[in-house]
Each structure stands twice: as structure tokens, then as C-alpha cells.
Design a protein around this nucleic acid. Sequence first.
DNA 1: GTGGTCTAGACCACT
DNA 2: GTGGTCTAGACCACA
Lengths: 139, 139, 139, 139
Amino acid sequence: MLIQLDPRSSTPIWEQIVNSIKELILKDILSPQDKLPSVRELASTLVVNPNTVSKAYQELERQGVIETLRGRGTFVAEMIIPRKDEQKMAALEQQLKQILMEATYLGVSKDTLVHWLNNYYNELGGDKDAEGGKRPEND
Amino acid sequence: MLIQLDPRSSTPIWEQIVNSIKELILKDILSPQDKLPSVRELASTLVVNPNTVSKAYQELERQGVIETLRGRGTFVAEMIIPRKDEQKMAALEQQLKQILMEATYLGVSKDTLVHWLNNYYNELGGDKDAEGGKRPEND
Amino acid sequence: MLIQLDPRSSTPIWEQIVNSIKELILKDILSPQDKLPSVRELASTLVVNPNTVSKAYQELERQGVIETLRGRGTFVAEMIIPRKDEQKMAALEQQLKQILMEATYLGVSKDTLVHWLNNYYNELGGDKDAEGGKRPEND
Amino acid sequence: MLIQLDPRSSTPIWEQIVNSIKELILKDILSPQDKLPSVRELASTLVVNPNTVSKAYQELERQGVIETLRGRGTFVAEMIIPRKDEQKMAALEQQLKQILMEATYLGVSKDTLVHWLNNYYNELGGDKDAEGGKRPEND
DNA sequence: GTGGTCTAGACCACT
DNA sequence: GTGGTCTAGACCACA
């Protein structure tokens, strides 16, 4: 279970941890019921303040991604049925809009963005829940 | 020239201003050579501190989007030829990856993201060099 | 770590701070990874407003001279490989031209300028890779 | 008598005018006793506010570079014997130091600076007051 | 503790 | 009038 942090990044460390763990789950490296390392353990391997890991775990639990069982540890939760959260979706749209704008100023075309999107989609396991494994040559 | 700010947003006000102005330029509502409102003027219409607007203008100038002519005011700069900035492009890729991940957790499909992307593209006048309005099967 | 400010100078205080720190780094008084004093700390020792120091730090970071690690402090960055920035080089040429002109009007010869240049070069440790101290006929 | 202004430059317009005129004199394009254009005339050719030209002329007169004869106009003064102004010389040294520092960060060597200096020296007419025309191959 | 943001209000140089 | 700088003091998120 490899987590790479960038202390120079502007995104908070706790958020990087949250994202990394979510990514590991999406990539099936972590599966429901798997036990996560303890706060202290992860903190020491990441060379980070335990408070930071704790904050990440709290956020993950708030999002329903992991579950804490008193005295037993922290575990990956069952995949939740996503409820359409209008607010978050709007935020996502906004972010996408922002990215397209910045891309334009950088000379990156919309199609390149779509291309990247497809790449990551396959990287994350693609359409495995659909026809299972069959993935078009989006690349 | 309408700029909408969200004081509750986590993105700094000065950055919201920067983004809004870049958007206005991409939408051709502001064109090269156009004079921007003065720092004080914009500050009072947006009900923000002049320093905040000033910071936004300085950032825009640093990015080469606007120019300030000493004692005369601030103007939209000529469109610069974007030089491929590897670092910023990587950051963009990273952001896109992040969005796709969050989208997955929200139950938003990749295709919806692409759909949004195309929408914004057209909104920004993406097809303005074509027949304008008639949009190909991007949708 | 001594920084001398001249409040009467026409160059902004924040810029004087920027220059001083860059000089300290070039003189190896500050080395990569070294921690800089905190914004508040430096502000109080220099008897300036924290915002002024903050602006200096932000500019230094923008230039890639220092790095700020969220919540931990500000540190001297690894020496970056300078990428030839044509525009900045032209500006430098222009400045040099201006100096030569002013020197002429002050009765300062070109050779004196070169002499000064060599002096500062040595002062900055220009010959630090050589025997250090013994200086060739630059004088 | 050609004067090129850059409204985008950070150096004030009046100062650009001052520098341009001093340069024209050093290059012998303007000679002692020559009549300068009137404030209004120059202002209109440069497309600049008359106050700006006026300020430039005032500064030039303060420096003893030009002379105003009431009702007759403004003229280039006789070359003044430069009085060693310690303060200004120190300022010059400081500027040179600053330039060397910035050059270092830009990857421009000291020798390149010296090279540029020699170039401009020749451009300005070189050592014409010395042995008259004989100039070493500094290039 | 750290830096980042924002407000309020002041002064200055430039045009 | 313009933007740039600085101060004083406040609040916030991050580690």
C-alpha cells in the first residue's frame, strides 16, 4: 500500500492522504473489509504528524469510505451506493469549467483533456462494472 | 461586465476575480485593449477591499493577461501565444485525475464529465471559428 | 542572518528583503534546506509589518528560491538550474546600458564598473570553486 | 531625433525621456547648444502628457544636462565636468551589485556582463575622448 | 506554531 | 485620476 505525498503541493497533506486512499480503493488495491494501518503506524511510515492522518481518517469516515470499529481498527467500507449530491456535482462542474479555462490559457485543447480523462478512466479499472474488462482503445 | 463572487467559497476572493476576468476575456466580453475598471471602482462595485482587487490585478498581470499602464489604468493584453509549460500541464492532468476520482465516488460517469467539458467548451465560444452556433456531435 | 533595510530607499521594503535573502543564499550564509525565520519573527526583528515580509516570501517562492511547507515554515529551496529567460536577460542588458550611461555622466569610467563587478563577484564567492581568496588578475 | 518609449516598462515615462536624451547626447546626436523641441512639441510627437515631458526637462535641467533660456527655448548644455558625487556613485555600485546577483540567478555569467558593458561602451562612442578612435577589440 | 487572506485606512509616484 | 506600497489588526486552515 503505497502512498506518495508531496509536501510542496498546495493541497493539504490530510487531503492528499484522503485522495490516495480513495484511489487505492478504486484501483482495487484496497478492498472492502481490508484493515487500514493505524493512525500512528501510517503517520510514522508517511513521516507525518499523527494529527494529520487522524484528520484524513475522519474525513474518509465522514464520506462513508471507511469505517472505524472500536478497539478493532479501521476498515474499508462496502462500496456505498452514490447518492446524487447536487451540491457536490455542481462543485465538480465548476472545477471542470475552471480546468478547461486554464487549459485554454495554457494552449491545451479540450480534446487533450478528454484524452487524459479517458486515460485515467482506464487506469482506474475502466468499465469493469459494465461488461467487465472489455475496454475500448481510447488511447 | 458582471462578476459574481462567493464569499463563502474556499477559493480566495482575489482568485475568483482572476478567474472571472479570464473567463470574460475567453468569452470575448472583454477584448484586448479594453480598459478594466479601476481598482477602487471594481472594489466598490464588488464590495471588497481595494487591496483584494489589486492583488487580483497583479496576478493577472503576472500571467500576462492584462497590462497596467502607469497612471492610466489597467487594460486587457493582447492574447499571448501560450508556451507549453510542462509543469502546469502536469498539474492540470493531476487535477483532472482528481476530478474523475471524485466523480466516481459521486456516481457521476466519465461520459458525463466529457459532456460537461463539451458544454463549457461551446459556452466559451470554442466553435467561434466555425459557423458559430451549429455545434458538431460533441454533445 | 543579518538583513539591513533602508526605509528611505525607493525600492520597496519587500523587494529589499527579497534581494537580501537572495544575497545571503549566494554567499552561502543560507543553504538549501535551511529554515528561514517565520514571517512574524522576521517582521518583528526588521520592525516591519508581517504583510511586508509575507509579500517578500511569496515573491521568493514564486521565483523558486524558497519553499514553504504548509504549517511548518519556510525553507531555502535547492538551487534551481536557471533556464535562460530571454526576456529577463534583455532587461538585464538594458539595465547595464543604463548604468554605463549614468556612470559616464558621473565621471565613472567603464573600467571602474568592471572593477566593481569583479569585486562583487569575488565577494559573492565567485571563486569559491578555486582556491578561495587568491584572485586572478580580474582586478 | 528618435525617442522610443515603452509604456509597459516599470520605469516612469519621464525617466525614459531623460535617459533617451542623455543617450542622444552621449552618442553626439545632440550636441551642446542644440535646441530641444518644446515641451508641447515633444509631448505631441511622443503622444504623452505635456506634464510628463515637462518633468523630464526639469530633471535634465536639475542635472545640468540642458539649459532653459527664458523665451528662447531649451538647449543642450556644455558638457559639465563631472563632480564625483559619492552618494550617486555608491548607488551605482549598489545597482551593479544587484545586477550581478540577478544575473547569477539567471545563469548569466559575470563575463557576459562585462562583455555587454564593453559593447555598450563602444556603441556610445567608446574612448573617443582618449586617444581618439583607437579602440581595443573588446568584443 | 506556521503561512494565507482580508479589511481599513494611509501615503506616494506617475499621468 | 491611476496603481503600488505599507501598516495595523483580524481570522482561518494546516501541522
